[in-house]
């Protein structure tokens, strides 16, 4: 702790401010969840607790189907994005043109959803057209339907969206790993893959796990890019957007928002708790080891 002459009350005040901001960011969502359990919906003067809205949502075949699509997308996004982010982080470590590489990999963070979605939409439509034309010119049917809007194109949109987050998290974890360990493993006779899997991966596992959680949640919550690129199916958040824009908010919509928030909080919250407990454990261990030679 930075020990100096700061007034402890000023520090307490600043802590209070920090927690107020966290709470302010969370409270609208908490209020939405609160409404979703009210039998009478938003605006009612009376509050009767009920699961009915959730029962209606989960009993709706269309909504359950959209949840399934959401799940497929999330699982595929994790399965592709995480290995790719690992490759990117490795590539970054050995790359001699780090700035150019990072600029390419992180730029998607700075391109807003609707702009990225529109660009990819027009790109895919042209690509599909180009392949159809190629097939016709060559007189073969292979290229029919390539890059038609659908699961694949929505997937690509999601990878472009989620990859930068996974890349940063893994890179930060990897920056604490010292490369000499890999060299030592290689010197002991390990192959590059063995050195990675047996020496490096166990040390970055926490980062990989948290980026899995982040990608799952980002994919689960994504609405705009998927909405533009999905073609024929709907994800859960697509349905919610459509409801908000067309019907306005019903009790059902509140329950859907509730489901999305609760899933995010549970997944991210548990990852946070695991990370915090782990780092608490590690720092306690470090403190215990440092104790005899503390001070100076």
């Amino acid at each position: 702790m930075y020990d100096n002459f700061a007034n402890p009350w000023t520090i307490r005040l600043k802590w209070a401010y920090l927690l107020t901001v966290v709470l302010a960011l969370l409270s609208p969502v908490m209020y939405t969840v609160y409404i979703s359990f009210n039998e009478h919906g938003f605006g009612a003067r009376i509050y009767d607790f009920t699961f009915d809205w959730y029962r209606i949502v989960l009993g709706d075949k269309l909504l359950v189907a959209s949840l399934e699509w959401t799940l497929y997308l999330a699982v595929t996004a994790v399965a592709i994005t995480i290995p790719m982010a690992l490759l990117s982080a490795k590539f970054y470590k050995r790359s001699r043109r780090k700035v150019a590489f990072v600029a390419l990999m992180l730029s998607p963070l700075f391109v807003p959803a609707d702009i990225m979605g529109s660009s990819l939409l027009v790109f895919f439509k042209n690509l599909a057209g180009a392949f159809t034309w190629l097939g016709e010119t060559l007189g073969v049917g292979w290229f029919e339907g390539w890059f038609d809007l659908g699961f694949l194109t929505a997937m690509i949109g999601q990878i472009i969206y989620t990859h930068p987050y996974a890349f940063i998290v893994i890179l930060i974890t990897m920056s604490r790993y010292r490369g000499q360990q890999t060299e030592a493993a290689r010197a002991c006779g390990a192959t590059a893959w063995q050195a990675f899997w047996q020496v490096e991966f166990p040390q970055i596992r926490v980062g990989v796990l948290s980026s899995c959680a982040f990608v799952t949640i980002l994919s689960f919550n994504e609405a705009v890019r998927t909405g533009l690129l999905k073609g024929g199916f709907d994800t859960f958040s697509n349905v919610l957007v459509a409801q908000m824009l067309n019907i306005g908010m019903s009790g059902e919509s509140y329950a859907m928002a509730g489901i999305m928030s609760i899933v995010s909080v549970v997944v991210i919250g548990s990852i946070l708790v695991i990370t915090l407990l782990r780092s608490e454990h590690l720092s306690r261990k470090a403190r215990a080891m440092a104790e005899p030679m503390m001070s100076s």
Binding site: P28, V29, S264
Partner: peptide
């Protein structure tokens, strides 16, 4: 320090759609 900063991940990771919409009843 990192743990305190991580507190802000939680609101950031809730669907933007829900967070924006949730401002209406507020």
């Amino acid at each position: 320090q990192h743990r305190v900063i991580l507190l802000f991940i939680l609101p950031f990771m809730i669907s933007e759609l829900v967070r924006v919409f949730a401002m209406r009843p507020v």
